[in-house]
Write a protein that binds this DNA or RNA. Structure first.
Lengths: 248, 248
DNA sequence: CGAATCCTTGAACACCTTCAACAGGGGTGG
DNA sequence: CCACCCCTGTTGAAGGTGTTCAAGGATTCG
């Protein structure tokens, strides 16, 4: 498998480290100095890139690490006892996932790559040990989790109060904002997730999502070709979305 | 105001302290020994009981403390820019709230007492300082927040996938479980929140909630008289609720 | 090229909402 | 103590938004 070894070689060449990672400020917003970073860097495992459809972990597995997306994207989802899937989040570069496993000690959800993706894996027990020497670390962790809670509550409000149109517009705004934070275009990007996933996440039928994309296109708000989205009128999309959209 | 002083005297007499608090294990599930508790106890402020309708904090106010319910119940809610209210949670004795403010440093939601309620207020800066000496404390915090995230995700799945009937049944199951954990009856309790609040929380119209209560009653599942609920057939309510309901 | 998957479009239907009116408590003031 | 009023909760009927069912088109991959 020549492909793997090439990628591995690339990674080695790049000397991947938190200090050099352009996403670092997104993972752990503030409060870690260079020395702390050095320590943190030592405990992080980097996994070889995963392919589209590969899982990082499955629901029910024991919790050992939290994860940060380096590149690509990840979908987390739960499966209810009747087999129904519920998408709990999409995770872009610089975002952490797996935090919801801390309480029970096992993952309540599964995580799967939506495209070719690489992640940092941070063993939680070592992170906790490190936290005893670096007080700002647990503080950062709490902030990240607080942000996650806020995001979930925003989403909750969205599903409760908003129409299908507002939800999809809000979703697109959220993606736009997150992409631009990462240095990508705010107006043009690829949806790594399927219409089914979007619908599942926003509590809409796949067909409704599809119809809305068509309608938005007819209204001149955007153009969609398969996975590719181009927002022509970001302001109007924002207006459609109504209330402010959480950053994550 | 003779009433206040009486209550204050009561509190003093009871020598309220985490060690003696029957709810302690609910606030901070495991891992704190007696000495840690003593330290924690010193930084906790106890506020005089608040009346129904009184606020603990308002959205937008600077974040200073997290709160734990001692008795009574609290509703947290956000107000969107168009003035619409969104209930984000109901908090029973032993449950923490205000955690969602850690990230931004200000409260994203408001908290109001649904009945006569008393809370513990824990200044967050002092809690963080204490965390540097007591490593199990930040660990506990993370667990509590992880649990909150899990709860929100469960709720999200509920709003996404379930019918109005399943949502209300699930809500009742959740309350039942939480009351029984606190030593109250699992089959008979008072709803401190209004039908409007329940509907808001479950993303249903007030009328739908009302109709469902009536229907459940007709089916012999329960009886409701105003705020008072008695679950006759807990198993059937659970069955109606479908998937397992989060504990919080 | 064929199969599988993803996406789109149409039509009928269901669930819940909205609008409207009314009933019943609980508190206040007379 | 009773009358009144306001607020909460209940019930009915009409209507809308999104779903479900069904079929067909597009894209990708073996």
């Amino acid at each position: 498998m020549p492909k793997h070894s090439t990628v591995a070689a690339d990674l080695a060449r790049f000397k991947v480290a938190c200090q050099n990672c352009s996403l670092f400020q997104l993972c752990l917003p503030v409060g870690l100095d260079r020395g702390d970073l050095e320590l943190l860097d030592r405990i992080i495992k980097r996994r070889r890139p995963v392919h589209r459809g590969e899982h990082l972990f499955h629901a029910g597995e024991p919790f050992q690490s939290i994860y940060a997306v380096r590149s690509g994207s990840v979908k987390t989802y739960t499966v209810s006892e009747d087999g129904g899937e519920q998408v709990t989040g999409f995770h872009l570069p610089g975002e952490l996932f797996g935090l919801d496993a801390i309480n029970a000690g096992k993952h309540p959800c599964s995580a799967v790559a939506l495209e070719a993706t690489s992640v940092c894996e941070v063993p939680f027990d070592r992170l906790e040990e490190l936290g005893e020497d670096v007080p700002s670390l647990p503080r950062q962790m709490l902030r990240v989790m607080s942000k996650t809670i806020l995001h979930d509550q925003t989403l909750l409000a969205y599903l409760s109060k908003k129409t299908a149109e507002e939800r999809l517009a809000g979703f697109l705004c959220s993606l736009s904002q997150r992409f631009s934070q990462r240095g990508f275009s705010a107006r043009e990007f690829n949806l790594s997730m399927s219409r089914v996933d979007i619908g599942n996440y926003l509590a809409l039928a796949e067909e409704t999502v599809s119809r809305l994309f068509t309608r938005f296109q007819e209204q001149g708000l955007l153009s969609v070709v398969r996975k590719h989205v181009r927002l022509h009128d970001l302001d109007r999309v924002r207006a459609l979305a109504g209330a402010a959209v959480s950053a994550r």
